[in-house]
Nucleic acid binder design. Structure first.
Lengths: 135, 135
DNA sequence: GATTGTTGGTCTCAAAAAGAGACTAGCGCT
DNA sequence: AGCGCTAGTCTCTTTTTGAGACCAACAATC
C-alpha cells in the first residue's frame, strides 16, 4: 500500500523529487521566505538602493508597520538584507541588500520582469476563467 | 503633509515605483499567486510532466487536500495550468502546464535553482542571526 | 453480497497568520 | 507646553490555512 504509492508516483523521475518533505527540501525552505506577500516588493526596492524603515513604509503604501517589521526581520535573518542603526537624535535605521541578496535578486528580477510583461495575459486568463465559472 | 511624503520618498527614482498600490501593480498582482506556499512546488512538478490530483497529493506529502484543490484552481485561473477530466469509472483529473505556465517557469526555475545552490548559505545566515539574537 | 478501496473533491471546525490601529520614548521645533 | 519625528511593539479583529470527516459511484475482494 505504501510501497505501491511510491512505485506509482516516483517511477524513475528525471527530476529530483525524492525529498519534498518539509524539512529537507531546499526549495521550500528558501522559497517560503521570499515567497511572502511583501518580500519581493521589499527586495525589489532594496535591490536598487538602501532605504530606511519609514521610506519603505511610504514606498509600499498598504503594508502594515507590523508586517514591514516582520518581513524585514525575516529577510535579515536569511541574510538577504543588512540592518544598520544610526544613533542620530531620533535613531534612524537603514536597510540595505547584502551580496547574498543581490545574487538572489539576479534570477528573481527575471521573474518580476516576466510578471510585468505578462500581466495582461494573466488578467485575460483570469477573466476567461471567471466567465466560464458563472455558467 | 501628503505631498511632502511623496516628495521625500519619490524624489526621481530611477526604478519605476510610481504605482505600487494594490490595484495597478503588475508585480504584486502576478506574484501574489505564484508566491503562495505551495504554488512553486506544484508548478515545479507540472513543469516536468502532467500529473493527476492524487499523484500531486502524494508527491507533496504535507499539503492538505483543501489547499491542493485551491492552489490548483488558482493556478488554473491565472492560466498557468490546464485541468482535464477523464470520464473513467472513478473519474480522473489530469493537470498539465500551459504555454503561459512554461514561459513563467523558465525564469522561475532559475530562482528555484538558486534556492538549491544557496540553501547552505541561507541556513548559515539564519544560524548566525539566531545566535546573535539570544544574546 | 457486504465490505473495502479508489477517484477528486467539499464541508466544518480549530489554529495560525495577517491587518488595523493605538501606544511607547526621547529629542527637535515652535 | 504641545506637536511631530523616529522605529517599532502590543492588542484586537479578520482572514488564511491546516486537519480531518464526509460524499457518490464504481471495482475488486472476501
Amino acid at each position: 500500500m505504501d510501497n505501491r504509492t511510491r512505485a506509482t508516483t516516483f517511477a524513475g523521475e528525471p527530476c529530483d523529487m525524492s525529498s519534498w518533505d518539509a524539512g529537507n527540501c531546499p526549495v521550500r525552505d528558501v522559497m517560503n521566505q521570499i515567497a511572502g506577500k511583501w518580500s519581493t516588493l521589499i527586495l525589489e526596492a532594496l535591490a536598487e538602493r538602501p532605504y530606511r524603515f519609514g521610506e519603505l513604509r511610504r514606498l509600499v503604501p498598504d503594508i502594515s508597520q507590523r508586517m514591514l517589521t516582520q518581513t524585514l526581520r525575516d529577510l535579515q535573518r536569511d541574510g538577504y538584507i543588512d540592518r544598520q542603526v544610526f544613533p542620530t537624535k531620533p535613531p534612524s535605521v537603514e536597510y540595505s541588500m547584502t551580496e547574498l541578496g543581490h545574487s538572489l535578486f539576479a534570477p528573481l528580477s527575471k521573474v518580476l520582469a516576466w510578471a510585468g510583461d505578462n500581466h495582461a495575459a494573466v488578467k485575460a486568463a483570469r477573466a476567461r476563467f471567471d466567465a466560464s465559472e458563472l455558467a
